[in-house]
Design a binder for these strands. Structure first.
Length: 211
DNA sequence: AACTCGGGGCA
DNA sequence: TGCCCAGAGTT
């Protein structure tokens, strides 16, 4: 078992409940929730989408909203101008090009406005069961600290991590690294004292003498 | 690879 | 007031 798999198995024991914490019922809801989650938090997104999806949970219902109306519904999330514009444009494209369905490939998803590689990976892995390792700020920070990756480029981090794990673990590993990044391996003042991974951690070894 | 853009929430 | 927060797009 390589280092990456050992780390994942430790995290599996530490966070047996790790999963996508965005509330959604359909691929479309997950796509929209993930677009909303950029530079925000899952908790704030869930509060908003509870009301939003009650009335606007499909592309055809969504495009019945004006941009101003959608902005009012997502105002507390921040960056609402771009997000509202992208959600409406993406919904229009889903209707015109994909029969109102969410496409099932990363290549098609990233063509949608406001959908980057991270969001596309989240959607295909969680909604369609296609193995994908989504890299966000938490994931990159954690894998870099643990010495699994050395890049700041999310694409490179994705390549490096997936090369060390079996496809079957991609999706779960993503959620495990996020959980660890949020609960323990925080950007500021990480809780190294209660972390079971310090043995394998480059960051911990480098900062040990300063602690 | 580096840079810009973008805004509410919370300490 | 400053800084955080499940990124995307452009150069």
């Amino acid at each position: 078992m390589n280092k990456a798999r050992k780390i994942v198995s430790v995290l599996q024991e530490l966070y047996p409940e790790a999963k996508c914490e965005l509330n959604y019922r359909t691929p479309y809801e997950l796509l929209i929730a993930t677009m909303l989650s950029a530079q925000s938090t899952d908790k704030r997104v869930n509060i908003i989408t509870k009301d939003l999806f009650a009335s606007y949970n499909t592309p055809d219902k969504m495009v019945s909203l004006s941009e101003g109306e959608l902005i009012e519904l997502i105002r507390t999330i921040g960056f609402y101008n771009n997000k509202a514009k992208n959600i409406l444009m993406t919904s229009h494209i889903l209707l015109e090009k994909y029969g109102g369905e969410v496409p099932k490939t990363r290549e098609e998803l990233v063509k949608l406005p406001g959908v980057g590689r991270k969001t596309a990976n989240v959607v295909i892995s969680n909604a369609f069961g296609i193995p994908a390792f989504a890299v966000d700020t938490h994931v990159g920070r954690v894998t870099n600290r643990l010495g699994l990756t050395k890049s700041k480029n999310p694409n490179q981090i994705e390549i490096d991590v997936t090369s060390q794990l079996p496809k079957k673990l991609y999706t779960q590993a993503h959620h495990l690294f996020i959980f660890h990044g949020r609960k323990c391996c925080k950007a500021i003042r990480p809780l190294c004292d209660s972390c079971p991974l310090t043995v394998n951690c480059t960051y911990y070894k480098q900062n040990k003498q300063e602690r």
